[in-house]
């Protein structure tokens, strides 16, 4: 059972039977077995039969899952299992990759996001994202935070705005303060909001990116291994932050750190190599008593 991690996704998809012989589970059987997760309340996202190809590489196979609102959903799995690909489908950032092809349905609040005429700007306003490595803009901290609202026309400052009497400097100050406080960064940077954000430490940069995403007032925040590039202290700050955020926002977090998933998430989806969603349930259930033998092996560290 320890031989499945390093194989090529295509090869495994083709040889699924041979590689998962222990309990007689094939990937084909596994894919829809334990994913029928029930929860109270409305789903924020409804994903049905989602398939993604990168060129000839079939990166995600028939993913169907509902993501509940105002909670933390963790996506875990070994490298190359498609969890980041799945995340990028939720705000259509995969459109940026020329060879990517997406098939299936993703609905946000019941509205299909994969159809003609969807306004990607509007979608990404509602579904924010924080990336694996911090990517602040080479601008001041203040400008980084107010970037989204500026682009959406909610904040105007500068000479032109002052001349035409639409100066939003105060609004900007409040927004910056609120967002930085939400991201637990305010105390560290409040005296130097005009400094270039590139000068911040890695952990601070990542919290700045979270604050930046919050400032656009999204409904969903997608996080792609937000703490993987950070030291333990910064990581724990980010984790606390994620738990807090789930009171007001729907958070979807990709991580390959299982302890982290267990600490912060309400429900967990396990992807395994080849791009299959194998099991999706309450986090406690997944970590204490998973249905799938392969998920148990993965979680107990037998592979992956």
């Amino acid at each position: 059972m320890s031989n499945t991690t390093q194989t090529d996704p295509n090869a495994e998809a083709a040889n699924g039977n041979e590689q998962t012989t222990v309990v007689g589970e094939t990937n084909e059987e596994l894919k829809a077995e334990w994913v029928d997760y029930r929860f109270d309340g409305e789903p924020k996202f409804t994903v049905e039969d989602l398939n993604v190809w990168y060129g000839d590489d079939h990166a995600l196979h028939d993913i169907s899952m509902d993501i509940p609102e105002k909670s933390v959903t963790a996506l875990i799995g070994p490298s190359g299992c498609g969890k980041s690909t799945f995340l990028r489908c939720l705000n259509r950032m995969n459109d940026r990759i020329k060879v990517a092809r997406v098939d299936g349905s993703v609905r946000l609040d019941g509205r299909e996001i994969y159809q003609d005429g969807v306004d990607l700007v509007e979608l990404r306003k509602r579904v924010g994202q924080v990336f694996q490595s911090p990517n602040p803009f080479p601008k001041s901290i203040r400008r980084n935070i107010s970037y989204g609202p500026r682009k959406h026309g909610d904040v105007n400052t500068g000479l032109l705005a002052r001349l035409t009497g639409r100066d939003d400097s105060e609004k900007e100050e409040k927004l910056v303060e609120r967002s930085l406080k939400q991201a637990a960064l305010w105390d560290e940077v409040k005296g130097r909001l005009d400094d270039n954000a590139i000068g911040l430490s890695g952990g601070q940069q990542q919290r700045l990116c979270i604050a930046r995403a919050l400032a656009t007032d999204p409904e969903v925040i997608l996080m792609d291994e937000p703490a993987s590039a950070l030291d333990p202290v910064a990581t724990s700050k980010i984790e606390d932050l994620i738990v807090e955020l789930s009171e007001d926002y729907t958070v979807v977090v990709v991580t390959h750190n299982m302890q982290q998933a267990a600490r912060i998430s309400d429900q967990t989806a396990v992807f395994l190599t080849g791009g299959y969603l194998v099991e999706y349930d309450d986090t406690d259930k997944i970590f204490e008593n998973p249905e799938s033998q392969r998920v148990e092996d993965y979680i107990t560290g037998k592979f992956g």
């Binding site: 990404r124 306003k125 602040p136 803009f137 970037y147 989204g148 995403a213």
Partner: peptide, 11 residues
């Protein structure tokens, strides 16, 4: 990554 950051904010 910088461009992705901007697009993901709805720019």
């Amino acid at each position: 990554a910088m461009k992705d950051g901007s697009l993901a904010l709805g720019a």
